[in-house]
Computed example of a mutant assay.
Amino acid sequence: MMVLAVTGYKGHELGIFSNKHEAVPYIKGILKNRLAHLVEEGLEWVVISGQLGVELWAGEAVIELKDSYPDLKLAVLTPFQHQEQRWKENTQEYYQLILSKADFVDSISKRSYENPGQLQAANQFIIEKTDGLLVLYDTDQPGSPEFYLKTAHKYVELGNEYPILSISFFDINDYIEESQKSNEDDWVT
């Protein structure tokens, strides 16, 4: 897999309203670990649509991974132009920071938001242009990743080989426990 789409919940769907929330470093950490493993297997590009939450945290993870994997690239393909225009100022600054460090940025629709069809078209476009999907999603917690997943599953049903990799809440809890244990072990030695 050379080109991977990454998506997941928006921050508010997880009860996270700030990047300073205690869960954010763990979510970015597990994304970074999964992406590093995939880079070792040949991953070259990570594609996000720039949505708040998991997608921008994945963008940050890619940017951090570039220190160890300088050939890794980040593409941000927004569903429409100016998707950030109604966000709070500090959120817009964070978004612009991620975009400024991306290797490729473009909007799929060259217009501002008009209707939900632009989001559906963006999901379809990104699925068709990538080799697989990494999604932070749990079937017990419905949310916005469902739209991406439905598109990906339809794409597979049409006979396309398209791996769908997932990170669940159990995976995050395991990662948190391992991280905390590792930190405790560091104090002991």
Rank of each mutant, 00 (worst) to 15 (best):
G132L: 02
S100P: 06
D106H: 09
L119K: 03
E128D: 12
F147H: 10
Y94M: 05
T130F: 01
K129A: 14
N123K: 02
K88V: 05
Y113H: 10
N90W: 15
Y95W: 15
K110D: 14
G132N: 05
I98M: 04
D138I: 03
K150I: 02
F125L: 12
P116V: 08
Q96H: 14
A102T: 07
W87G: 03
Q92H: 03
S107V: 04
D138N: 14
L133W: 04
L149V: 07
Q85Y: 08
A121Y: 10
G143I: 04
R111M: 12
V105A: 01
S109F: 15
D131L: 09
L136M: 11
Q118K: 10
P145T: 07
Q96I: 08
G143L: 06
I127K: 00
N90F: 14
I126Y: 09
W87F: 04
A102E: 03
D138P: 01
I126K: 05
W87Q: 01
K101N: 07
D131K: 02
D131H: 13
E114A: 12
S112Q: 14
K129G: 08
N115V: 07
Y148K: 01
Y148F: 11
N123A: 00
Y137E: 07
V105S: 07
R86I: 00
D140E: 13
N90E: 15
S109H: 15
D140S: 12
N123Q: 04
I126V: 15
A122G: 05
A102K: 08
D131A: 11
I98H: 04
Y137A: 06
P145K: 05
F147K: 02
K129S: 14
S100F: 06
T91R: 11
L99H: 05
Q92R: 15
E128V: 02
Q141D: 12
E93Q: 15
E93T: 13
Q96R: 14
L97Y: 09
L99A: 02
L136S: 02
K101R: 12
F147T: 07
S144F: 11
R111V: 12
G117C: 11
E114F: 11
E128C: 03
S144I: 13
N123G: 07
A121H: 11
I127T: 06
S100H: 00
D103R: 06
S109D: 15
L136R: 03
E89M: 08
V135Q: 02
L133A: 05
F125V: 03
Q120G: 13
P116H: 02
Y113M: 09
Y95N: 07
S107Q: 05
R86S: 09
L99E: 08
E89L: 11
Q124E: 14
V105P: 01
N123E: 04
Y137T: 04
E93C: 07
I108P: 02
L134Y: 08
D103M: 01
S144L: 12
Y137S: 06
P142I: 06
W87H: 00
I127D: 06
F147S: 08
L97R: 10
R86E: 12
T91C: 05
L97I: 01
N123W: 08
